[in-house]
């Protein structure tokens, strides 16, 4: 397989709401199969929300191009791999849950009931991908509502569908720019806020905001340290001078 980052394109106009993706995902991850999930959970890495007018929206990790969760993890337990998936290593995780706070899409779930808890979220079937297979949800979809490919390919395909079927789609590919871009792309017949998406996310990668502050640390430490030392030197020099002058006057 090529090393070019992989992505998913999910076309809401094609989804028939059969929930095959939900069940296939659970099976692939060894969870008890209950395809009724409408909300992400520790045993549901993808879920399907049924909306009026026979619309259905999948929920899953967006696998951001520049993920907040990976940037905030103090130990790097969450990583963006070159192949596309954002993966999680429970062995080094502290359980600080900053990833959950930071995720702009509120995706990670936590095993609050476990004595040894893990963060749980879609891993883009990273193990299946390594064996040359497509993600379980893609394989299970009978309507090709979720398709797999490189991000560049799928972005072009999404734009082609919008251009060739004016009126059928809302003219925007969700995930192209949201939070700096994601590896899961969505097409919708209606504006995205009407199908439960956060439509007003910043287009800059969120980790950049943090980095803008973190990169100032060396300056703060060096200038601050020098300044404090300088003040100490001046105040104590003043003392020495005063003591010396007193000694001088005492001598006269």
């Amino acid at each position: 397989m090529a090393t070019e980052p992989r992505a998913l394109l999910i076309d809401l106009t094609r989804c028939i709401g059969c929930r095959a993706c939900v069940g296939a995902c659970q099976e692939a991850h060894g969870f008890p199969v209950d395809d009724t999930a409408t909300e992400l959970g520790v045993r549901a890495y993808t879920a399907l929300v049924d909306l009026p007018q026979d619309r259905h929206v999948r929920k899953l990790c967006m696998h951001c191009v520049n993920p907040s969760c990976a940037s905030v993890c103090p130990v790097g337990a969450l990583r963006k791999t070159a192949a596309g998936p954002v993966t999680y290593d429970a062995r080094i995780c502290l359980g600080c849950r900053y990833c959950m706070v930071a995720c702009p899409f509120d995706v990670p779930r936590y095993e609050y009931r476990a004595a040894v808890p893990s963060v749980r979220k879609c891993d883009f079937c990273v193990d299946r991908q390594a064996q040359g297979q497509v993600p379980a949800c893609v394989e299970a979809c009978p309507a090709e509502a979720t398709v797999f490919g490189t991000r560049a390919e799928l972005l072009a395909e999404a734009k082609k569908r919008v251009a060739e079927n004016p009126g059928q789609y809302f003219d925007r590919v969700y995930g192209e720019r949201e939070a700096g871009g994601t590896s899961v792309l969505f097409l919708s017949p209606v504006p995205f806020e009407q199908v439960g998406f956060k439509a007003a996310l910043p287009t800059e990668p969120l980790p950049d905001i943090t980095w803008g502050v973190l990169e100032k640390i060396p300056g703060v430490v060096s200038v601050g340290g020098a300044a404090l030392f300088a003040v100490w030197w001046i105040t104590h020099r003043r003392q020495e001078v005063a003591a010396a002058e007193e000694a001088l006057h005492g001598a006269h």
């Binding site: 940037s71 905030v72 993890c73 103090p74 130990v75 790097g76 080094i92 600080c96 900053y98 980790p207 943090t210 980095w211 502050v213 973190l214 640390i217």
Partner: peptide, 11 residues
Amino acid sequence: FWNPRSVMFEV
């Protein structure tokens, strides 16, 4: 395990 891009790491 260092992740200098994380504020939590710095804290």
